[in-house]
Design a protein around this nucleic acid. Structure first.
Length: 428
RNA sequence: GCUCCGGUAGCUCAGCGUGGCAGAGCGCGGGGCUGUGGACCCCGAGGUCCCGGGUUCAAGUCCCGGCCGGAGCCCCA
């Protein structure tokens, strides 16, 4: 049997140096999330399809990996983290003191046509803030995202923000059933506002123009947003709930030093969101690099007690694309100093002693035994391959318990006692 | 699931129109050079030309199907 060497469609082998950038993203995200008091959740890659069916309807299966296992269960590869985390919360964590703050990283799977920044297997990092209905939870997530981006060096991003409860509130007032609301919002998301409004007119009559005006609002500042909603004459109940929360969050974003604008056309698909929703965008890349929102009813959809929650996820591949376009990708993974230790003698114990002393100082040591190849080949190779130092152990050094260390950047070279050897950089 | 473009050495690609010996640069290995640098010179290895089928005396080249990638639909939790 001949095996195909290409990875399966939409998947990739992630190898150095790309793999190191992935590792930096997850490591740095973990550090920032933990500094905010989030704790790591590791959840299964496979799930019962039912939890996604419950959340999004059976039609979701066409964009997922779904299959029967050997016992006939309907299993899927997770297409996201949030539903699984809420499932795990309902199973294990409902008795924990609120809020429950969790973060995660890992791969997710979607059966779609691959393109740049869109893969069938891709990686996300994210966090969920469970058990807090007030806006400061939403705001903390923005702070966390800001600190993460600062840590990895991303700067040119902006938040597109909405509160989906405002449009849904209008639709509910007009008696539009939830399933129809989903359809209408889906059309808005696709840019088919004309068709969406036609459907709404069937319920609301001429009042539907209020939704039309709302969808045209794009506010760059809280005062602009305040003026716009005042002009529209939204119902008081929406002003005191969704609109006031959106204003609070908008003001918070700006005072945190973040770029943000409110866009009522933002819907974020057929999701379970009930309040704040947002996406992160960068110039010159038409896919969002992350997004999230408030989902106060998801736990009930999954059959548990209702618990307010808000969360986000960031796409690792898309973050890397953004870093690349800002020309800061290479600075993400700072390489450790690397030494090529060339041994011209067969004395494992001595070579091990020398290598161990350097490794204890965090220096990468790559041991080569020179046999047929001449020393000049290996020194040249070390230089071409980007090593920082060459350490040479030959007959002369071995006899005196010494090692010769050469700094390839400066060309300086010293022979020192093997046991006194520390960071070779100190010798340059 | 649909449309268009592409796939030739490890990498970047030429060759394909008009069928006729598988190529270049870089990289890799060896030597020039017995324990010290990226240059230079010489030599070398490395290919089922994405896979399968068809047309033909002859296919990397033309035709059909598939696989993988890119661009765009659909979708994007």
């Amino acid at each position: 049997m001949r095996v195909p060497l290409e990875p399966a469609r939409g998947t990739r082998d992630i190898l150095p140096p790309l793999s190191e950038y992935y590792q930096q993203i997850t490591t740095k995200f973990s550090e920032v999330a933990e500094l905010y008091g989030y704790r790591l959740a590791i959840i299964p890659t496979i799930e019962h399809f039912e939890i996604y069916e419950a959340k999004s309807g059976p039609g979701i299966s066409k964009s997922m990996y779904v299959f029967q296992d050997k016992a006939g269960r309907t299993i899927c590869l997770r297409p996201e983290f949030t539903a699984s985390l809420v499932r795990a919360y309902l199973k294990h964590l409902t008795a924990w003191p609120k809020p429950v703050k969790l973060y995660y990283y890992g791969q997710v799977f979607r059966y779609e046509e691959p393109q740049l920044g869109r893969y069938r297997e891709f990686y996300q990092v994210g966090a969920e803030y469970i058990g807090e209905p007030r806006a400061f939870a939403d705001i903390e997530l923005f702070q966390l995202i800001r600190d993460f981006y600062r840590t990895v060096g991303l700067s040119g991003y902006a938040f597109r923000v909405n509160d989906i409860s405002i449009a849904r509130g209008l639709l509910s007032r007009w008696g539009v059933p939830e399933e129809v609301q989903d359809d209408v919002l889906h059309m808005v998301d696709k840019g088919e506002t004309g068709r969406a409004l036609e459907v709404v007119r069937g319920y609301a009559g001429p009042e539907a123009s209020l939704l039309e005006s709302l969808l045209e609002v794009r506010a760059e500042s809280p005062s602009e947003l305040r003026a716009e909603v005042e002009r529209l004459g939204l119902p008081q109940e929406l002003l005191s709930t969704g609109v006031s929360r959106l204003l609070e969050i908008f003001e918070a974003l700006l005072s945190l030093g973040l770029r943000a604008y409110v866009d009522f056309r933002l819907v974020r698909g057929l999701a379970y969101y009930t309040g704040t929703i947002f996406e992160v965008s960068v110039p010159g890349f038409n896919l969002s690099i992350g997004g999230g929102g408030r989902y106060d009813t998801l736990s009930r959809i999954l059959g548990g007690a209702e618990v307010p929650a808000v969360g986000f996820s960031l796409g690792v591949e898309r973050t890397l694309i953004a870093l690349e376009s800002e020309k800061v990708l290479e600075s993400l993974a700072k390489p450790r100093p690397r030494t090529m230790l060339i041994s011209l003698v067969r004395d494992l114990a001595f070579v091990d002693r020398v290598a161990t002393r350097m490794r204890e100082r965090g220096v990468v040591v790559d041991v080569r035994y020179s046999q047929k190849r001449r020393l000049s080949d290996l020194v040249g190779q070390a230089s071409r391959a980007g090593y920082d130092y060459v350490a040479i152990v030959g007959e002369a050094e071995l006899g005196e318990g010494k090692v010769t260390v050469k700094c390839l950047k400066t060309g300086t070279q010293r022979t020192v006692d093997a046991d006194a050897l520390g960071d070779p950089g100190a010798l340059c």
